[in-house]
Design a protein around this nucleic acid. Sequence first.
DNA 1: TCTGGGGTCCTAGGACCC
DNA 2: TCTGGGGTCCTAGGACCC
Length: 427
Amino acid sequence: MYAIIDCNSFYCSCERLFRPDLLHQPVVVLSNNDGCIIARSDEAKSVGLPMGLPYFQARPLIQQHRVAVFSSNYALYGNLSMRVMDTLRHLLPSGTVEVYSVDEAFLECSHIAPDQVASFALELRHTVEMWTGIRVSIGVAPGKVLSKMANRLAKRKKQETGCVLVLDDPDKIRQALLDTEVGDIWGIGRRYADKLRAMGINTAWQLRHMPEEWARKNLGGVIGVRMIRELNGIPSIPMKDPLEVKKMISTSRMFGRTVTDAAEIRQAVAAYLSRAAEKLRRQGYAAGLIDVYVVSNGTSGGEYAYDPQRDHRYVILPRATSLTSELLEQALPLVDQLYRPGVRYLKAGVILSELVPESAIQSDLFSDSPSSSAGQKLMEALDNINFSNGADTVRFASSGMARTWRMKQEMRSRRFTTHWNELFEIT
DNA sequence: TCTGGGGTCCTAGGACCC
DNA sequence: TCTGGGGTCCTAGGACCC
């Protein structure tokens, strides 16, 4: 059996943890740049605020129902996520927890007797809430797809299920499949859902009875075949090895306003690259390739304009590196190749790929410094200062001083758990 | 005026090789 | 006028996820 454990309205729960006065109030959290709604408490859902609604469109409803609004506070969410995941790893045998996203983890439960699974799940839910203050929902079933389905149904019927649902016999599975529309299956996105409905397939139960060969042709090849098997209770999506190396690290942001100045684009790219390099070092990798891209405002206004030929450049590094200075040196010239005067830019981004473990860097035949250990010490010092004193305390001058292009975050709560000067105070 | 950011996997098709 | 078969590697693009 597989379980998925999922934090309820995670970002909102994090905000409420330090604002108990909001416990039964509607709460929403906004995307970067305070652009749109990305998390809603149950109360906010029930006043009719949909996911992804632009903030400016949501404003009337927000005022009418006195909804508490927060800018996203990733320092806080990341730290609380770590606490939840640590709790799971503490309570389960090693190798059975797969962190799937900031607020979800799959558990492989073969070590638990089938008749114990339900009580174990309830216990787990209770412990996570006691230790972290975060409420979770748990779905258990044979396979990841069915466990996601169980989780979804558990949340939908909180009162009856206590946020835990175990699909452990054919009748329960059948009922769950009948109760799930194709578009609500994990792995079926909007495109496939439209396609399936056009073919008269509306429920997971109907999809389950389609032949594998049909799925191979119509649902993305092997992905479709795995889907049919999972729906039939045959686990076909394995647990992921937590040690697997990442393939890319990317950092991108919308600007707080449109930007037309090349110097400002360079600053933004320098800042995103610094951030990406920090992630790179934290995970112990070096990058062999840098991608830089920009997105502009379409000529007719409104629309995003991105043309890979025109708006994206990359450079292959002579030697993989994780030093911000070396990466900057290679990446900044790309900006000048991309930049077109007079264009209104909305966003820029940096992608680091061809990642290799720092310990296994291929040195280049002609480089004079075998491994730039002074540079590495400098980066270590930089990362330590920025970790303990807050991001960007020390940064490269190329990332700019005034930085008026930076995103808006006007309603961010304090970083209660990660910054000494922002601790929760009791008076 | 105002619509996020960070990922993964898979396939098709072109270039190239023997 | 005729013009193979088998393979690898790479990239772009589509689809999905939270």
